[in-house]
Structures are given as C-alpha cells and as structure tokens.
Design a protein around this nucleic acid. Structure first.
Lengths: 145, 145
DNA sequence: TAGACTGTTTGATGGAGGTCGACCACATGA
DNA sequence: TCATGTGGTCGACCTCCATCAAACAGTCTA
C-alpha cells in the first residue's frame, strides 16, 4: 500500500526514455514530510522559482529561463530540491527541461503553504535583486499559448 | 505609522517592570516576513515547542517544562527565535517565564501554516525521541488552571 | 563531425545557525 | 544571608547547506 502509483518515480528502466529522463526521480507531495517542505521553501531562491513558475502556464518554462542570482550549478541544485519536496514536476523536451508547479497536489498535502509563498511580494527575501523597475516581463514574457 | 502599537515591543523603559521583563522584546506576527516564519518553523525542536504549547492552556507552561533533547542554553535560544517570529508571547511570573502561543494573530498573518505544524505527528522530524511510551503527560501534566 | 546549448555532477569553500559548557542575573524561601 | 531553581548570555565548536568553478553528458543544428 502507500506510495501512490505515480509516486516516488525511480523509473524501472524504461527503454522508451532517454538516459537523461531516467534519472528524473519525482516525489509525490503526499509522501513528503513537513520537514522537507519547509526546508525547500525556506530558501528565497527556491521561493522565487516557485513564484515565477506559478506565473506561467505549465510546461512552458525551462530551468535556464529563470532570472536567478546564482550560477547554473546552484540552479540545478535548487530544482532538484524542489522536485524532491514534491513542489515541481519536470519533463525533458529536447535539450531543455520543462517545469510544472504541482499546485493542486501540493496544496492538498500542505493546505495554505503554497499560497503563502505565492502571496509573498517578490524581492522581499534576501538574495533577490528586488526586481528591476523595468518590470521583469520584458522580452521572454510569460504569455501563454 | 506602521508598527502596530503593541507590536515590536522594545519596552520604553518601564520602571514597573523587572529588569528581566524589560529585555523581553516581542514582535507582532503582522510584522514578520515569511522568511522569518519559515526559518522559525523549519527547526524540529521549535515545532515541538509549538505543538506542546498548543496542547495546553495559555500561560501555563514555563520554558523549562518542555521535554526537549537540548540543553537550557539551546532551549533559551529557540524560545527567542519563536518570539522573534511572532509565534509565541512570553511573560515573567516570578522566576519562571510563561508562554502563550499566538494562535489567532499568527494564523491571521500566515493562514494555514500553524495548522500544518500542529497537524504534524510528534516524533516525525529528526532530533526528536519519538516520544517515550509512557506518554508525556505523566507527572507535571498539562492540566490548566 | 563539430559546435552550440542546456543541464547535471563533482569537489571545494564559506557562512549561517544549532549546540554545548560555563558563567551571570534574578526571584524565592529557609 | 545563603541556597536553590529558573532562565539568559557568551564564546567556541561543528555540522549542514548554499554557492561556485570546472568537467561531463545529452540534444539539436549546421
């Protein structure tokens, strides 16, 4: 019992998947302890990712498209943490790795927690450039399909 | 402007207060950034304090009566952090320092967050003895007034 | 085949914070 | 006045984790 079918997906060697995708292990929010959720959201960079992700449709943002004050190595680390906390889902699309915020599932497990993060004004926490006055949605923008 | 009247109470030198009580600076939850709230609740010992505090009536538990796997120095530190995050209120009663969980105020500022902590099964997070079989409320108990 | 692009992994580093022992401050009671 | 009990402060230690640079691994296009 337990471990939701699509849960802790350590993929059982699926040949239809690329070698890269096979390393993508997801954790369902239902299996995440509160400790991990709080640890994940206690970092300002990760909360920024979550907020930016919430502002765009699912599967439209690759990891590299986020405006973060860290190198790609650190960025990669943060995405892994968010994945491990059941906050995001990832899928490989060519060379890019697209992201989705697990809104409903996560909110079902931790009611209200995600809302607090999304309600937090951007640039409030440290390690954030407090956003530039020119508004962030200049070029890439977050328009949908 | 701002800073709720009873807010960040760095008491303006009140002679009716003991020297000890004068050092008791409180922060109103409304003035607490999400970062501080998450930092405060990300520690398992502090969540234990919050849960134990929620299980007893206000102003009935002194700092020393909590069953924690740390020394009093660390304990004192944790209580200070909780106070600074607007999670608890403290009052000196003789040599003891009594505590109160700021349920309503904190929940108004961070809806749902406190509920998540209280819903967390005790002994789940690390650094907790997973509770002793004899039930915690043996001697001192938490009965109220 | 080579190059550009995207993302991960590894090893090292620095800082923040949890922890402790020791000492100090205050209140109470004998 | 002294002893006790409660709690805070200080300095030191130590672990964890965010961070980076460098090297590696796929994917796509030319």
């Amino acid at each position: 019992m337990s471990v939701r079918q699509e849960s802790n997906t350590a993929p059982p060697a699926d040949r239809t998947l690329s070698a890269r995708a096979r390393n993508l292990t997801h954790v369902h929010p239902a299996d995440v302890p509160l400790q991990d959720a709080l640890d994940a959201l206690a970092d300002p960079v990760r909360r920024t990712i979550v907020r930016e992700l919430a502002a765009t449709p699912d599967w439209t943002r690759a990891c590299g498209t986020f405006d973060l004050p860290v190198t790609k190595a650190t960025r990669s680390h943060h995405f892994a943490v968010l994945r491990g906390a059941g906050l995001i889902e990832q899928r490989d699309e060519g060379p890019r790795r697209l992201n989705r915020l697990r809104r409903a599932e996560f909110d079902a497990r931790f009611p209200g927690l995600l809302a607090l993060v999304l309600a937090e004004p951007a640039g409030t926490a440290p390690a954030e450039p407090a956003s530039d006055p020119g508004d962030g949605a200049s070029a890439d923008s977050g328009n949908g399909d």
